[in-house]
Structure formats: C-alpha cells, structure tokens
C-alpha cells in the first residue's frame, strides 16, 4: 500500500504547481461565502447557525468538484503519462486510490478554509458547535462521493471537457433524486415506496441528516460505499 503515497504526493502537489489550485480555492471560497450572504440571506435569519452556508454545498459541489476531478485520468491519458505511471511498479488500485485521495485532500482543504464563517457565527452568537462539526464532516464525505464519480468519468475519456460534462450529469441525477420538487413529480407517476427508495440514493437526503447535527451511520456508509463503488468501476475501466 505504500506505493499509493508517491502517487498521492505527486497529484496533490500537481494542483499547486499549476494555477488550478489557486483559481479553485478563490472561486470556491468566494462562491460559498457569497451564496451564504447574498442568496442564503445569512443575516436575515437572525440565527447563529451555518444552515444557510451548508444549504448550498451540494449545488456548489455539482459544478466545482468536477472541475477538480476532470483532469485526474483524462489528463494522464491525453499526455501519455499513463504509460509511464503503469510501467512503474505501481498497481492500478494503488494509482487510483492515490490520485483519488490527493483530490479529496485538496477539496477537504478548500472546505476547511471556509472556517472564518464558523468563527463569525461563533463571534456573533452562540451556535451549536456539534451541528457545525457534523455538517463539515458531511460536506467532506459528500465531496468524496462526488469525486469518486468524477474520477470514474475521467477514466472513460481523454477529453477533459467530456469528462466534466459527464460528471456534472451523473452527479445532477443523483442530486435530483432527493430534491423535493423532483420527487413530488415522481410520486405522481410511481408508487410512494419507489420514490422513497430512489430518494435514499440521493446526496441531499443523506447530507441533510448531517446538517441537522446527526451523524447517521447509514449516511456515512452511503457516502463511503458510493465512493468505493465508483473507484472500483474506475479500476475496471483502466484495466480494460
């Protein structure tokens, strides 16, 4: 397993060797704070909570995480470095996990850097820190699932744009399953139990439990198993 470390190190450093990391961090932080204040009307709520901050995470991730994940494998394929990588003494599994963890670590860093907003609510009022902690945990886990899907789609093509659009599409479908408007629409056609089962597959359904301050084992398992499944398919796609 120690061979994942060099891959992880190189991939993580790769974000900072190009402008990608800095552009992403600036956009991510501006968007997450901007949405909280201007769309979520943070101050109007008069409540010391980060509800209006975490509310937007699934929708923000929908576009920003494919931007991080789209290059994972498609870039290796396009530039031919995949041939170098897979003739080094590294297994496909180690390479896939190493690259995935690097991207996840990078996104987790971006999420962590939003901490001033937490300090702000702490300064203004008396928030429930447990809820804030579980929300952050849920956000990072959800980001991991998004990334798993992005890693998989980027292994299917050597074109980053196609990889981006595919990831957004797949993530959008999984998001929609739990969106109330969408499930209302579905319940007009399908029986209730099907709609309920489908919405259990959605990011938002499971993320919501975290933002309510509940660390539900089922939701943790949901996010982790979704990532694991995506990565397994990713390995298969590369070994094909």
């Amino acid at each position: 397993m120690n061979q994942t470390i060099p891959v992880l190190k190189r991939e993580f450093g790769g974000y900072f060797r190009s402008p990608v990391a800095y552009v992403f961090l600036v956009v991510f932080l501006t968007a997450s704070i901007g949405l909280t204040f201007f769309v979520g009307n943070f101050f109007d709520g008069q409540v010391a909570s980060l509800q209006s901050f975490f509310l937007f995470h699934p929708w923000m991730f929908l576009f920003l995480i494919p931007a991080v994940g789209m290059r994972l494998w498609s870039e290796e394929k396009r530039s031919g470095t995949i041939e170098l990588l897979f003739t080094l003494p590294i297994t496909t599994t180690q390479a896939v996990i190493g690259k995935y963890l690097a991207a996840w670590l990078f996104v987790a860093l971006a999420i962590f850097l939003t901490f001033p907003i937490a300090i702000t609510v702490g300064y203004l009022g008396d928030p429930d820190w447990g809820v804030i902690f579980s929300s952050y945990l849920g956000s990072i886990l959800m980001a991991g699932s998004f990334l798993g899907i992005c890693s998989l789609t980027s292994a299917l093509t050597q074109n980053q744009i196609i990889s981006f659009i595919l990831s957004v599409l797949v993530c959008l479908i999984i998001l929609f399953l739990g969106w109330s408007i969408f499930s209302d629409l579905l319940s007009a056609i399908f029986p209730f139990w099907i709609v309920d089962a489908l919405s259990n597959f959605s990011f938002t359904t499971h993320f919501d439990t975290f933002t309510k301050g509940i660390i539900n084992v089922r939701s943790v398992i949901y996010f982790l198993s979704l990532s694991a499944t995506a990565l397994m398919l990713n390995i298969l796609a590369l070994e094909r």
Partner: peptide, 26 residues
C-alpha cells in the same frame, strides 16, 4: 522503459520529476 515520445509530467521540474521516480522506485 522509455516510452515513445518520452512522456513526463509537464508541470514538474526535472528534479521534482526524478524525486517522484525515486519515490516510486522505493
């Protein structure tokens, strides 16, 4: 192995790249 057209990670410096190879080669 030297693949055709010798691919290498473009954004790395030569030293960074060789350090990466050293990592992978144990």
């Amino acid at each position: 192995y030297l693949p055709e057209s010798s691919p290498a990670y473009q954004e790395m410096t030569v030293l960074e790249f060789l350090n990466f190879i050293a990592d992978c080669r144990g």
